[in-house]
Write a protein that binds this DNA or RNA. Structure first.
Length: 601
RNA sequence: GGUCCCGUAGCUCAACCGGAUAGAGCAACUGCCUUCUAAGCAGUAGGUUGUAGGUUCGAGUCCUACCGGGAUCGCCA
């Protein structure tokens, strides 16, 4: 939240019309303060320019009169009257109205929007890009699934949310580093090694039983087989097989994970190994740092309030003073066997992130990590002397359905739906889009059958259809008019409420980018895409009732060219927004949806 | 029991830093294909934003308590 506040002050270089007018209105107020029309002590920080909820009120609205009325000793309507002529003189303003408790509503003229369209038509993705982030380094960590099995649908959501967020932040002008934290330390990796070794023996013809506590998943057969291919039977009678099989299995599974992720367009800048953080001294360095600051001590934790675990006994251990940074209790750094806790390794990770120059850290995790947020925030604050911005967006679970019927998953039996299963069924584009059709902390239903449905009920299809429809119109236009250049179209032909309405929807894009980036909510891009598609489909249909609104009018090339400019604008913005969420736009939708997207991304 | 997330139309969900009359889609009902892809569009109807207080010019949004659903709770990661 403080992040949002801080960035609001940067004058950003983008086509965000709300920011543009906020800056202009604030400077105009300063002018009035200089010439003593208004008291020169006004604090304009709360002055905002926003979209009126009801578009009938105008294109922009400012609360200036309401937030400044007390300070200036004027009533809001009178203050609004003072501001009105000044605002009217801003370029692009068509009309200014005062409404309700003192809202100042601003209507922009068509020319202003035509200029926006011209920028969109340049087509080099400048429109929508923002300098909001000032190239500030941001480290985005996501997926970070344990390398003990294949990625599941649940991981896929975090992966897609994280990756889209990273792309979004880059679009908003941040210098983003995409990071995968490999949990290759700890007991689970030992279990993995043991399990892999069993499968190796099995591959060599032995009959095995999987003991309680080992991973039963069938996928480990492949690992055992691969180990046999590479190593022969040399590990059969050795007792020190564990280190080798640990590493072999982790590498094998990480390769699979990387390959799966690559298939949905996700590649990382950095893979951070928990194990190496321990072995290369990162953990020690980080803990020394905390020690120096007096943030570590030997102590005994109170038992959890309420229900006491059966085996609870007071124990002295090394604790981190996370309560100094807002946590509820101090957190243990070492287990009773002397090895570090997961949290200690995470602290080391934070330390390294900060040492690499990143004060902004975003970690996308599953909702089951909810209880971890506070201590992680504490740790990052401790590491950065309070200079850091840490956020941990939570992704709620995904329930998988097939035509409304739940698909059962059981981790215990080793049967779960892998990312690859879903990818094979629906393709990467569908998957990425559907995963963003809910706010990430809301549970999401993923229905195989519906994901491939070719109807407006499928948001992916709905949006792609708009893009394909735009492409189709441009193709028809070429047949009708021969080669043409939309850049030379006379845009004043678009001066009708229907077409200006479509253009207004397009003009929202830069603002969506900035708002979504600040809120760390990539799903807003997917929602916006649906708005654009809707505006476009709606316009298309208007042509049925009113021939002058048809995209192509054979005997009116002028208007057709203007329409084609707008159609191209729609196409560009959809393609640009799809790119932000890592989805390839489709030019045609004649065939099967899955086949169409098979090669996308 | 502690902590975190969620609670908005019959269903699934939006709502931009606290702004105006809380918006879409589905389902229901009514229309629109000799026409650029009807795989679509338009319209009607549907609400005490879980409850009760508080903060202020103004609250779905912030604060407190409660109710309901989920997650999590030292030597798992």
């Amino acid at each position: 939240m403080s992040v949002t506040f801080a960035y609001a002050w940067f004058k950003t270089n983008s086509m965000n019309i709300y920011n543009e007018f906020e800056v202009k209105i604030k400077s105009l107020i300063s002018g009035l303060m200089r010439d003593k029309t208004l008291p020169d002590t006004l604090d304009t920080t709360k002055v905002a320019v926003e979209a009126p909820r009801d578009s009938a009120h105008g294109d922009l609205a400012t609360n200036a009169a309401m937030v400044l009325c007390k300070q200036s000793g004027m009533n809001p309507r009178a203050l609004a009257e003072t501001l009105k002529p000044e605002i009217e003189s801003i370029t692009g303003v068509e009309a200014v109205d005062i409404a309700g408790p003192g809202f100042i509503n601003i209507r922009l003229n068509s020319n202003y929007y035509f200029q926006i369209l011209q920028t969109i038509l340049k087509g080099d993705n400048i429109f929508g890009s923002s300098s909001l982030g000032q190239q500030k380094p941001v480290n985005v960590e996501y997926v970070s699934a344990n390398p003990t099995g294949p990625l599941t649908v649940g991981h896929a959501r975090g992966a897609i949310v994280g990756d889209s967020l990273a792309r979004l932040l880059a679009k908003a002008g941040f210098a983003v580093r995409k990071e995968y934290y490999i949990n290759d330390a700890g007991n689970q990796v030992n279990v993995l090694g043991e399990s892999a070794y069993l499968r190796y023996r099995e591959a060599l013809g032995e009959k095995i039983t999987i003991p309680e506590g080992c991973y039963p998943g069938e996928y480990l057969k492949e690992v055992g087989e691969a180990a046999k291919q590479q190593e022969g039977d040399q590990w059969l009678d050795k007792s020190d097989y564990l280190p080798f099989f640990r590493e072999f299995a982790v590498n094998y599974l990480m390769d699979e994970i990387k390959s799966d992720l690559h298939h949905i367009g996700i590649d990382f800048d950095l893979f951070y190994s928990e194990k190496s953080a321990v072995s290369n001294g990162s953990v020690d360095r980080a803990l020394d740092y905390l020690e120096e600051k007096g943030l570590l001590y030997q102590g005994v934790l109170e038992p959890p309030k309420g229900k006491k675990p059966d085996d609870w006994e007071p124990r002295e251990q090394t604790l981190f003073r996370s309560t100094d940074f807002g946590d509820d209790v101090d957190r243990p750094i070492k287990k009773s066997d002397g090895t570090y806790t997961y949290f200690a390794n995470d602290i080391a990770h934070f330390y390294d992130v900060y040492q690499d120059g990143y004060k902004d850290l975003i970690v996308v995790v599953g909702a089951d990590h909810g209880g971890y947020v506070r201590r992680a925030t504490s740790a990052f604050q401790a590491m950065t002397d309070g200079e850091g911005n840490f956020s941990m967006p939570l992704c709620a679970i995904v329930t998988v359905l097939n035509n409304g019927k739940p698909v059962r998953m059981s981790k215990r039996a080793g049967t779960f739906i892998t990312l690859r299963d879903v990818l094979d069924a629906v393709g990467p584009g569908v998957m990425r889009f559907i995963m963003l059709t809910r706010q990430s902390n809301q549970t999401l239903e993923f229905d195989y059958a519906k994901a491939l449905d070719q109807s407006k009920d499928n948001p992916y299809f709905y949006v792609q259809y708009a893009h394909a429809r735009a492409c189709s119109v441009l193709k028809h236009a070429k047949e009708m008019f021969g080669d043409f250049d939309v850049n030379s179209a006379d845009l004043t032909k678009l001066d009708r409420s229907e077409t200006i309405g479509v253009l207004k929807t397009l003009s929202q894009w830069p603002r969506i980018v900035e708002q979504a980036a600040l809120a760390r909510e990539p799903h807003r891009v997917a929602f916006y895409l649906q708005d654009v598609a809707s505006a476009f489909h709606s316009w298309w249909n208007m042509g049925r009732k009113d021939a002058t609104l048809r995209f192509l009018i054979e005997d009116d090339k002028e208007t057709s060219m203007a329409h084609l400019a707008l159609v191209t604008g729609v196409k560009n913005v959809i393609a640009d927004a799809l790119d932000v969420i890592g989805v390839e736009p489709l030019n045609e939708l004649r065939g099967d949806l899955k086949d169409e997207v098979g090669e996308a991304v």
